[in-house]
Write a protein that binds this DNA or RNA. Structure first.
Lengths: 106, 106
DNA sequence: GTAACGTATCACCCGATGATGACATCAACG
DNA sequence: CGTTGATGTCATCATCGGGTGATACGTTAC
């Protein structure tokens, strides 16, 4: 089956990305300020390669932007993908709240 | 701030649950009306055991309620977990939007 | 009663994916 | 230039998690 809208595909990707605890921690840290690999490695306690892999996934999903700064590479969190997913989830919650106690008969 | 620990744990669980495409489809279907296993099996094309497993995960995560109805078991989507996660994601997006171009020095 | 149906559980297989170490790359600094 | 430190990439491995079939349980129908 094909999905009909692009928004669904994007939110699917965002959900899969956020399902990993380390990536979620990184997203939370980047929500406050721009950081580079060394900060995230120290803050999370994970190995440098592990952090770099997580950042690669975030980058390919379009959730972060990179800004090379000398030897360092700063990462910035993009708000749009998160906001889009939040809206979709809100719509689902609203639909569930507004839906009557209708049961489709078997 | 509310109890931040419990909310975080719950949202973590919700994210992990929603990372699976089948579970996500089931959530979308349940957002409109209450359904039982047979409906979901037919609608998703997945096997009965597969759907039952997905529903088990949703149940244990506190995202759906079950209502036995004779031989059937109707499932109802609970809006709160979804709304809570949506709020958290919105907060992250807002924080990323409002945060200045501050880079923590290395 | 017995049969048929819906659902849940168990045991197993297998593909996906995250962690890790070795290596390559690139920029600053002497 | 050559070294050092930060970062990305590749190959490998182990673990996790979802799909599936057999089976069990409970309920309705005959």
């Amino acid at each position: 089956m094909m999905t009909s809208t692009n928004a669904d595909v994007t939110s699917d990707v965002v959900l899969r990305v956020l399902s990993d605890p380390l990536r979620r921690r990184i997203v939370a840290l980047l929500a406050r300020e721009q950081l580079c690999n060394c900060h995230l490695t120290e803050a999370t306690g994970a190995g440098q390669t592990t952090v770099s892999n997580a950042l690669r996934v975030l980058r390919e999903a379009g959730m972060v932007e990179t800004e090379p700064c000398g030897r360092f590479t700063y990462y910035r969190l993009l708000p749009e993908p998160l906001a889009g997913l939040a809206d979709e989830l809100s719509a689902l919650a609203r639909s569930a709240r507004e839906s009557p106690d209708h049961k489709r008969p078997c």
